[in-house]
């Protein structure tokens, strides 16, 4: 019972932290997703001069642990006289990581569209841009939404890394409360519950909206969509990966 009473004391502060966590998630996605789509288009471009830099950026973004990127932005860039608030640093770092991971998800979605559809577009005289906008992307979006939602949930949990650069998000609040009361079990359990509640709600929402089913493929389309490869961020645990 005592834990419930403590939670009552912590909750208002934690909810303030949750707001910061959600803001950080939102800003990271707002910046990261369009960039990810851009990188995916660049990675599938015909010209190597466009393809290679994009691929390099994505590999760096996925190869570097998010915490390293975060430290780089927070501690490294000021040495080049680029100084931002800790929130901005966290948002920039997480947006970069987001763009790298989602670029690969988008790329997999784009390459899941049968080559024949692109050939049909060419045979109909559609420009490359129209082929993407009217035929490839509308189909690819349907393929990538489930893995994207999965990534958003991981990013939401990953924002706890911003604790390391003292953004007052959910985990920071839990830690500072604990450092006053020494009730680590109670505070961290509550933080975990708050993270978990939002994540599970998001998963439930996704399942309701996009129930699992085999993608509809017309008789002519020969290749089933290629499953997105290596979409798990470095902070994802094995059990989470298995669940997905």
């Amino acid at each position: 019972m005592s834990m419930l009473n403590e939670w009552q004391d912590y909750l208002p502060d934690f909810l303030d932290g949750l707001v910061v966590t959600l803001q950080l998630t939102g800003v990271s996605l707002l910046l990261g997703l369009p960039l990810g789509l851009g990188l995916a288009l660049a990675m599938t471009a015909r010209r190597p001069a466009i393809r290679w830099p994009a691929t390099l950026l994505v590999e760096v973004g996925r190869g570097a642990p998010a915490l390293v990127v975060l430290y780089f932005v927070y501690y490294g860039l000021p040495q080049l006289s680029l100084t931002w608030s800790s929130f901005a640093c966290a948002a920039i770092a997480l947006a970069f990581t987001t763009s790298a991971y989602t670029a690969d998800i988008f790329r997999a979605g784009i390459s899941s569209i049968p080559v024949g559809h692109r050939e049909a577009c060419q045979a109909l005289g559609l420009s490359h841009a129209k082929e993407l906008r009217l035929v490839v992307l509308p189909q690819a979006i349907r393929v990538v939404i489930p893995p994207l939602v999965g990534f958003c949930i991981l990013l939401y949990q990953g924002t706890s890394l911003a604790f390391a650069v003292s953004v007052p998000e959910l985990l920071s609040r839990a830690y500072s409360q604990a450092s006053i009361t020494y009730q680590f079990t109670a505070t961290l359990t509550l933080a975990g519950l708050v993270y978990g509640a939002i994540s599970l709600a998001a998963v439930a929402l996704m399942r309701a909206r996009w129930p699992r089913r085999t993608p509809t493929i017309t008789a002519g389309a020969t290749r089933p969509p290629e499953p997105p490869t290596r979409t798990h961020p470095s902070w994802e645990t094995t059990s989470e990966r298995r669940e997905r």
């Binding site: 049909a120 559609l126 349907r142 017309t218 002519g220 389309a221 020969t222």
Partner: peptide, 29 residues
């Protein structure tokens, strides 16, 4: 490409569009 029409073995219709939208796409765009 405006003057040569092509029909494929696998049809290659765009599955996210209706028949009418499939047929309208190129004349419009």
């Amino acid at each position: 490409r405006r003057e040569v029409g092509m029909v494929f073995q696998n049809f290659n219709l765009f599955p996210h569009l209706t028949a009418l939208q499939n047929v309208m796409l190129a004349p419009v765009h």
